[in-house]
Design a binder for these strands. Structure first.
Lengths: 194, 194
DNA sequence: GTGATTTCTTGATCCAGGTCAAGATTATTT
DNA sequence: AAATAATCTTGACCTGGATCAAGAAATCAC
């Protein structure tokens, strides 16, 4: 598989600390496959095993679970060179309880588990990168937890509004509301307050 | 520094997937220092930079932040061979916003940042371990986030009660309440319901 | 472009869990 | 073991944000 230079830039963006080059890491750039999804298409569903590790080329994807009442509870978004996929299921190859859905038409680069593993075997510097990235993911989740626990709905709304990334500005508000752990009604009322 | 065989078992417990041995990883076992804390002694405080990575030998430590109203908000506990310390501050050597306090007299094994880094440089398998452990930490935090978001206070209480680890059974309930994101009053009422 | 969906807004009402208060237990110190 | 301090319990009351409902606005499909 030959990637275009645009796709190579996306991978470089996603793996920034690795200082990748096509010459030094040929395997890395050879094995990614392209794939694309339509609006509202599922990338994966609860009960299924995650086969791939994805990097988003374009579009917005959302990850959520269904709670006891069947409501979607949004845990995060992916876009612009960020990772997507159900991580625990991918790592352990066990059925997950997450859904990933493409909110806009999206293009991705993906690799499967054995390719993912072979990167780590072939490029030890990948392990270092993996450690650092996962440490940051962990710290980021703790920070989100603190915001959910200590801030009021209004405060969460305000903090989020200030740093809302561009690609999320055109998706339905109900998903942002869910991500902020509030109902669409509450989100709408906070919005009216400006 | 010479560790006793008890201390070596604690380290082996904490670093289980690494299959450590004194012969193959001498550096690893040489550099840990012992330290101990009294009840209610602070291991680290908000505003300070975390100097050490700790493994708990015995006792219970608690990590929390102070919210806007000055209330402690408990994020977790450490005991029995588990890691303790303010991780983001330790990694980046930047001031943290966390407090770590010893709830009982506790003994720890600790290493500083440069020793920690040298383990990774000397034992590449450490990087692999680090990646896996951090991935698990990340997944674990997402699971906690889901429980906080989707479960009622009663449900969180029930889930926690069933799997409450032994060392936490003797600490003041107000800390467990905080960890479950509820007031001590609510915790007490749920307890009365049995 | 027009009708059908979906999303957003706004009002009225409700309730889980917080807050305040005060007495009962339990633990700590001397 | 008494005095003191911290923690836990229970009751009364309150409130942020959820729920229910119904119309307005936006978006989609043909």
């Amino acid at each position: 598989m030959n990637l275009t230079s645009d796709q190579i830039s996306i991978l470089k963006l996603a793996f920034k600390p690795l200082e990748l080059s096509v010459e030094k890491h040929p395997l890395f750039f050879e094995q990614w496959q392209e794939d694309s999804f339509e609006r509202y298409e599922f990338i994966t569903e609860a009960g299924k095993i995650e086969r791939y590790f994805y990097i988003i080329e374009s579009g917005v994807q959302i990850i959520y679970i269904l709670d006891h009442s069947g409501n979607k509870r949004v845990l995060g978004f992916s876009f612009d060179g960020s990772y997507s996929g159900v991580y625990d299921s991918f790592l352990d190859q066990k059925p997950s309880s997450y859904f990933i859905e493409s909110l806009t038409p999206s293009k991705v680069l993906k690799i499967d588990k054995s390719q993912y593993n072979s990167f780590f075997e072939n490029y030890p510097e990948f392990e270092h990168w993996g450690r650092i990235i996962h440490a940051k993911l962990f710290v980021g989740r703790v920070e989100r937890e603190i915001e959910l626990i200590t801030l009021t709905a209004k405060e969460r709304f305000e903090v989020f509004s200030k740093r809302c990334p561009e690609p999320l500005k055109n998706i339905p508000q109900k998903y942002l509301a869910s991500y902020l752990n509030m109902t669409p009604e509450t989100y709408s009322r906070l919005r009216a307050e400006l």
